[in-house]
Nucleic acid binder design. Structure first.
Length: 346
DNA sequence: CACACGTGGCA
DNA sequence: TTGCCAAGTGT
């Protein structure tokens, strides 16, 4: 039995029962694929169910507000996915008469849909022969066939793409695509793969040459930048100051006014900084509480956050909006702010 | 094309 | 504890 058929046989016995595998509805397939980008099934599953419950059809999603979509997405990370999801729902409903594109090229053109997702939708929703190439596929192919090429280079990508296409069976490509990803997620995992019971023990290059730990090879390493943020929770009566971010981290979410510094400076230095003076220019204020520094780690940044509770009677009109405190929980916010609000009184 | 973009789990 | 990495895409 060849590689592809072994995977399909394994899949038919060992696959998980997941909601997006019980439908051909391109909306549900698309939604699941966006949610699962860089995200584990365990983490994405409840979000998928919530979205389908709140937005049973793509029209419900398109007719929603972006803030509501982001609120449902809150906690999942990579929020541009949610903004692109909403944008694309509106595009399909209002510019395509609600017809989900069916050609690979047209699907690839959708915002938030790249090569992987276009192939996945083509295969899972329209039963077309496109091989998916994601982290799971790369890992399985790299180990079984002994591919040393760095997958995050153009030549590496080409080699993996070629191999993925080569292994795609023209019959039942749907099951093969599901199978190789499921196998990568459950057996051929990044760390401590389950080689003991693996169906490819005899032919797996990595297993037979003790290369499981070093394959697949990746070139780029991420460097983490330290940032020192002070969030100002400015209360004015029963209102607080926030704004919707439109660039950088947490774009689309709401955030308190923040003062950023190059270094880890003391709270006294924050209050005496020119940034602080500039923010409160001519306005009365009173500091009620200053939180300890909370460290929030992102993939590319390590944030050192201090929350400063301030009472003020008026504020200089600027880029911030006033929100009633009891409406704060309606707004989409980052995990850092969500965590803080959940254990702190404002 | 290198980098930004979140969060959680795991060794 | 720290670093790696997960059903990637946009710029």
């Amino acid at each position: 039995m060849n590689f592809s058929n072994q995977l399909i046989t394994w899949y038919n016995i060992n696959s998980r029962d997941l909601p997006w595998r019980q439908t051909n509805d391109p909306y549900k397939i698309w939604l699941s694929e966006i949610i699962l980008q860089q995200t584990k099934v365990q983490q994405g599953l409840p979000y998928f169910n919530n979205f389908i419950c709140e937005f049973p059809t793509i029209f419900d999603l398109a007719n929603s507000s972006e803030d509501k979509v982001l609120k449902l997405w809150q906690g999942l990370g990579y929020y541009s996915r949610a903004r692109n999801l909403h944008y694309t729902a509106k595009y399909i409903c209002f510019s395509c008469n609600g017809n989900f594109p069916q050609n690979y090229k047209d699907i690839l053109n959708l915002k938030g849909v790249g090569e992987y997702t276009a192939s996945a939708i083509s295969s899972f929703a329209f039963n077309k022969n496109y091989a998916v190439l994601d982290g799971n596929v790369i890992r399985v192919l790299s180990r079984v066939f002994g591919i040393y090429n760095y997958f995050d280079t153009s030549s590496g990508k080409k080699q993996f793409k070629k191999l993925a296409d080569f292994n795609l069976p023209l019959k039942d490509s749907y099951t093969y695509n599901q199978a190789i990803m499921e196998f990568g997620a459950l057996v051929c995992t990044p760390k401590t793969p389950k080689c003991i019971n693996c169906i490819f023990q005899d032919e797996c290059y990595a297993f037979n040459n003790s290369k499981v730990q070093i394959l697949p090879k990746k070139q780029n390493k991420i460097k983490v930048k330290n940032r020192y943020l002070n969030f100002l929770i400015v209360s004015i009566g029963d209102h607080v100051l926030l704004k919707k971010k439109n660039k950088g981290i947490w774009s689309g979410l709401y955030e308190f006014p923040s003062l950023e510094f190059k270094k880890d400076i003391s709270k006294n230095n924050v209050v005496e900084s020119s940034q602080w003076t500039n923010f409160f220019y001519r306005n009365n204020f009173q500091i009620n509480n200053i939180s300890p520094i909370i460290v929030h780690k992102l993939s590319h940044q390590k944030l050192h956050i201090r929350f400063i509770h301030i009472k003020s009677d008026k504020v200089k009109p600027n880029t911030y909006q006033l929100f009633k405190k009891d409406q704060l929980l309606q707004l989409p916010v980052s995990k850092a702010i969500e965590n803080y609000l959940s254990q702190s009184f404002i």
